[in-house]
Design a protein around this nucleic acid. Structure first.
Length: 269
DNA sequence: ATGCTAACCTGCGCGC
DNA sequence: TGCGCGCAGGTTAGCA
């Protein structure tokens, strides 16, 4: 799935086509996503989508009556289509607009979700999220204080959405590499100085990826249905056995929290 | 409270 | 060709 940069890119891609449009119909071909698509999503019909925003990896479509909450899971993507475009096998939900277009969710693995909330700020999935990584409140001091007495490894720690949102498996490895921190280090035993480096690295890596339109991966298709995004150069992710860009040592792959981690045993201490 | 595991799905590339 | 296996960008519930 999309990591945060892809979600942000999707938001920017679909917004011009969706903002200010009235919803003509909501078509759910497959309601069995990560959570069942609720019947009250039909509340959306007839409403105007007044604004769109991103919170963590959730896309929010705001109307006067409530908010559509969309998550792309591991393999989801959103596209703007002409209304007559035939849906494919994994095109599960359409939001039909009054500009002769529709917003279409494709999600082969169905780990994504489409939900409806009257009051999005009270929604259980959004209520306990940590700060946005690119905001001011996400600082070295914040991470340092938050991590005291925590015995979890630093990679799992920064991937915890209660700590900070939007750091996925690719950019967790990349950020730790840039900061020179061994992913196995315990979060509670990392110095403020090193957290300064890590926060800078997370912000830099994510910003660069957003700038480049999101890292292109297997299932990601841009909001316009194009595949033309060029790829952000990844230093360690998916590069098991390849030479570290800085010291040429082969990149090591380990498993943490059921996910693959990639790092350099020499550059990351 | 914290940390760990299983679970939700489909598709793809690999070795045999 | 075909088959079985392992792996893949996320996140939550439930348990110790």
């Amino acid at each position: 799935m999309p990591e945060l940069p892809e979600v942000e890119t999707t938001l920017r891609g679909v917004s011009p086509h969706v903002k200010g449009q009235k919803v003509i119909a909501v078509c759910v071909r497959q309601p069995r996503l990560r959570w069942p698509v609720p019947d009250d999503l039909q509340m959306l019909q007839g409403e105007v989508i007044e604004s769109l925003q991103r919170r963590a990896k959730y896309l929010l479509l705001n109307t006067k009556k409530g908010t559509v909450i969309i998550h792309l899971g591991m393999s989801g993507s959103l596209r703007i289509c002409a209304q007559e475009t035939e849906p494919g096998k994994h095109d599960h939900v359409d939001i039909v607009l009054d500009n002769s277009k529709l917003l279409r969710l494709c999600d082969p693995r169905r780990f994504g979700s489409v939900l409806w909330a009257q009051n999005v700020n009270k929604h259980p999935l959004l209520r306990n999220l940590g700060p946005e990584p690119l905001s001011e409140v996400f600082s070295a001091n914040y991470l340092y204080e938050k991590s005291r007495n925590r015995k979890v490894n630093i990679k799992s720690f920064i991937m915890n959405a209660q700590v900070v949102v939007g750091v996925g498996n690719i950019y967790a490895s990349e950020s730790l590499y840039m900061a020179g921190i061994n992913p196995k280090n315990l979060a509670g035993r990392i110095s403020l100085k090193r957290y300064e480096k890590l926060v800078f690295s997370i912000k830099t890596v994510l910003s660069l990826a957003i700038e480049q339109g999101g890292t292109t991966l297997r299932d990601f298709v841009s909001a316009d249905g194009q595949t033309g995004y060029f790829q952000l150069k990844l230093s360690v992710y998916g590069r098991t056995g390849e030479a570290c860009p800085k010291c040429q040592t082969p990149i090591k792959q380990i498993t943490q929290g059921q996910r693959s981690t990639y790092y350099c045993t020499v550059c990351q201490k």
